[in-house]
Design a protein around this nucleic acid. Structure first.
Lengths: 146, 146
DNA sequence: TTAGCTGCAAAAGGTTTGCAAATTA
DNA sequence: TAATTTGCAAACCTTTTGCAGCTAA
């Protein structure tokens, strides 16, 4: 499961937490591991379930608090993929999410796709787009009438 | 308040409801009026408050059910402007929303701004973007460090 | 030692639902 | 009259919070 580079990433994050005066605990390690092992589309609940598989008495509130802490450190961010729960992923994820309103399927596309939009919003509106913070909704190929 | 063209719009919507076998009730009229009078950024709760100013015993659940019905008819749609409640607006609103993650301010921009993105997503991914269903997050001019 | 975490339980916000009574066409 | 809509209250889901006890550094 834990690919070798995931261990390195975990170690880096752990060090970052310590450098900021945070404590590295069993629940925190488990949350980080669950994110690293995930596909970048895990909700707090998914992460909680993964953590609890190994450490049954980690509370979901601890998962939320850890996710908060990791966001403050800039390690992860969350996206809203629809009406339900937000999903958490590494900051350098590099993708935007396309969510089909019909089948619910999520497709990742490189965030270069919004480069022109990002430039225009900056030029014309002084707005710095954070493209990974939200999903883009629409209808996927399979669900479109031809 | 009620601009003359709003009365016409209301009548059109009322007729559409009837044509689809729906009943036109006092609460429904009031919900539609609240949407027409709004700025396109009203949440279900905002709409409920506006409705209750005139008709104090309309329940919020009725507001939600009416909003649902209007969405099914294609008259309105909702957008997620952040972590809180969704906002409802006419389908032909023609704008996308820019939401500042720092100050929470919402700016409307004509949806022409996403034309190129829409075309690329269609070409490259077969994905039909529904740009008004979600807000785009980022940092607004005022909140950006220069 | 002590600031920082944790689990638990409860609360908070937004939205949905079941049901009997009221209303529309 | 028959089908739809309503108000109410309760449930639901996701996320947040208060607090006393626990633990990493």
């Amino acid at each position: 499961m834990a690919a070798p580079h995931q261990k390195e990433q975990l170690d880096q994050i752990v060090e970052l937490i310590r450098r900021h005066g945070g404590r590295v605990t069993v629940p925190r390690r488990a949350v980080i591991a669950a994110i690293l092992e995930g596909d970048g589309h895990r909700s707090a609940d998914d992460i909680g379930r993964a953590v609890q598989a190994e450490h049954p008495d980690v509370a979901l509130s601890t998962v939320y608090r850890t996710l908060d802490a990791l966001q403050q450190l800039g390690v992860i961010e969350h996206s809203h993929l629809g009406h339900g729960a937000a999903v958490y992923h590494l900051t350098d994820h590099g993708h935007v999410h396309l969510v089909c309103r019909s089948c619910g399927d999520v497709t990742d596309v490189p965030d270069e796709i919004v480069a022109e939009l990002t430039a225009r919003l900056d030029d014309e509106h002084g707005f710095a787009l954070a493209p990974r913070h939200f999903a883009m909704f629409g209808t996927c190929r399979r669900c479109r009438p031809d």
